[in-house]
Design a protein around this nucleic acid. Structure first.
Lengths: 122, 122
DNA sequence: ACAACTGTATTAGTTTCATAATACAATTAT
DNA sequence: ATAATTGTATTATGAAACTAATACAGTTGT
C-alpha cells in the first residue's frame, strides 16, 4: 500500500481515511491484529504521535479496539463494517453528483459523461 | 451562495475552489469584475488577508487578473474555462471511480450502484 | 527473572494557517 | 482637489498540526 499524503489535508486525517478504507475493503480482516503504533509510524513515515492520534480517532469510531498492552485489533462487528461500506459508497456517489451539478451540468449531461468515461476504465 | 467551510481543509484553499467553481459554472461571467478583497472577505466572513491569499492563488492559475487599482476581473479566455470544466468533470469521475475501487468494488458493482442511486436524484 | 514489546503521556520546538490592525500608492468618483 | 476605493505589504498574535525525544506501566516471550 502507498501512503501518499497530500498537503491539502492534515496527515492524521488522511491516515484515518486510509485505514478505514483498508478495513472496508477487507484488506484488514475482522478481529485481525494490526501493527503497533511505532511500526505503523515507520511504514507511513510519520511521527508515532501522529499515528497514535489517527488510531485513537479510529477507536472513537469503534473501528478498532485496544487491548492495553497486547495491541490493537480491527473490530469484529461485521454488520458495522458492511454498513460502513454501504455508506461510504453512497457518499461517494452523492458527493460526485453534487460536484458535477455545481459546475452547471444537468443530470443527463452527467449520465452521458459517466457512460463515456466509464467505457475507458478497468 | 453559501460559503460553508469545512475544517478538513484550509479556508483559503476552499475559497479558491469555491470561486473556481463559480467561474466554471458561469456564475461569474468572462471578463466580469469581481468584488474587492475587502468586500469578498466580509461576504465570506474571513479575514481580508485570507481572501487575498486565495485570490492571488487564482491569479497564478490565470483564472482572474488584476488591474492594479481598479479591481479584479475574471479571465476572458473562454477556451481555458471550457477546458477547465472538462478537466474538472473528468477528475471527479476518475476520483469517484478510484475510491469505489479502493473499497473493493468491481466495475459492474459500481455501475449497478450508480444506476440504482442516480434514479433517486434530481 | 528479564528483555522486548505494547499503548500512553509529557514537554518542547517548528511550521502553517488565520486573524488583527495598520499603512501605502494609485485610481476613481464627486 | 479631495474623499473613497482599489490591491498590496507589514508586523504581531494565537491556534493547530506535526515532529522530536523521552518516560512509564503493563504484558508477552524466552
Amino acid at each position: 500500500m502507498a501512503w501518499n499524503f497530500s498537503k491539502e489535508q492534515s496527515i492524521y486525517t488522511q491516515i484515518v481515511e486510509h485505514i478505514k478504507i483498508s478495513i472496508i475493503s477487507g484488506e484488514y480482516k475482522l478481529g485481525e491484529k494490526i501493527p503497533s503504533v511505532r511500526e505503523l509510524a515507520v511504514t507511513a513515515a510519520v511521527n508515532p504521535n501522529t499515528m497514535q492520534k489517527a488510531l485513537q480517532e479510529l477507536e472513537k469510531m469503534n473501528l478498532v479496539f485496544t487491548q492495553r498492552t497486547s495491541g490493537r485489533f480491527i473490530t469484529e462487528d461485521k454488520a458495522m463494517v458492511d454498513k460502513l461500506k454501504e455508506d461510504f459508497a453512497k457518499k461517494q456517489i452523492i458527493d460526485f453528483y453534487k460536484k458535477m451539478k455545481s459546475i452547471g451540468l444537468t443530470k443527463n449531461e452527467i449520465i452521458n459523461f459517466v457512460e463515456k468515461t466509464f467505457g475507458e476504465m478497468n
